[in-house]
Simulated assay, not measured.
Amino acid sequence: MRAVVRHEYGTADVLVVDEVPVPRPGRGEVLVRVDAAGLDRGAWHLMAGDPPAVRLALGLRRPRDPGVGSELAGVVVAIGPGDRSGLRIGDVVLGAGLATFAEYAIAKTTALCRRPSDLDAVAAAALPVSAVTAHQAVVDIARVTDGQRVLVIGAAGGVGAYAVQFAASCGAVVTAVSRRDKHAAVRDLGASAVVDRERVDPRDWGVHDVVIDIGGRRPLAQLGRLVARAGALVLVGGEGGRGPLGGTSRQVGAALRSPFLPFRARMFVSTVTTRALAPVVEAVADGRVRPVVDRVVGLGDVASGVSALEAGSLVGKVVVVPDAPTETA
């Protein structure tokens, strides 16, 4: 089968399309024919081996598993031994898998749910990691309620586009921080106000009951000035930074300092499970949230999609469709 792989860490240039064996599902796993796969920030970290600490699990000098990608939508075509999940061959599913930028991918049954018939594969593939992360940040961690003032930093990205929608669906007054050229898009997602991150000083972003910082690198002291007393600061991911932990060192620092701050500072690692997918799929079904897809690319154009992600030029997600034609030379 065809799959996107990398044999070394680096920039998008290390990604190539190669022929690899179709994997076999083990216990608690299924093989999914991938109809579409979402590109999330985690794929970039796997590609780059960044922060350096992740290489302890991935391989110190080069990746042990060359595959890339974690979100998928597709059809179950084989089931591992001793399965008790209730999934059957032919079931149409969405969720998280391994090396999903491929024609076939392995997924744990506990990270999948059945896909509603009115949700197409491309839209479904844009949900699993990003929408689940946003839901957990807004609903489970921040516990956003009606009338609260919520600031979403990084509002136009894969997670941010869903965070704006979930917060607005909770009845919050949402202020979105993004580049100026994305303001119309984030307003359309439910933001009541928008802030130009490049032109407006953070000290003028106001004070909010909840601040959700997605993939940022702003110091905790700066973010703390944006949070109301007894409010909540939720750090989702972290980019840049030095040392083995990279940007995640800021999250660790926030967790350690939280007991001494006048607000709740929380970091968390999102986990895609069947249970976590359920409220996301329900929110899409009843129209509170809609999948946000910036572009669809084939396997041969995954590198260009990653480059667009790095450049911050996207609104929402890149979705990879294995049989889509390659456009880049």
Rank of each mutant, 00 (worst) to 15 (best):
G59P: 14
W44F: 10
M47F: 02
G59Q: 12
A48T: 11
L56T: 07
L58I: 11
G59S: 05
R64V: 15
D40Q: 01
L60Y: 11
R62L: 11
D65S: 05
D40F: 02
R55N: 09
G42K: 03
W44C: 02
P63A: 06
R62D: 11
R62H: 13
G59N: 10
A48I: 01
R62T: 05
D50L: 13
A43I: 08
R41Y: 15
R61G: 10
R61N: 06
M47L: 12
V68H: 08
L58P: 05
D40P: 06
R61T: 03
G49V: 03
R55Y: 10
G38F: 07
L46Q: 12
L58H: 09
A48W: 06
L60A: 12
L46R: 12
A43F: 02
R61Y: 07
L46I: 01
R41Q: 12
R55S: 01
G59H: 09
P52S: 06
R64L: 15
R61A: 05
P51D: 02
W44K: 07
A53P: 05
R61K: 03
D50A: 11
L39Q: 10
L39Y: 06
L56N: 10
P66T: 00
P66G: 02
D65T: 04
A48G: 09
R41H: 14
R55E: 07
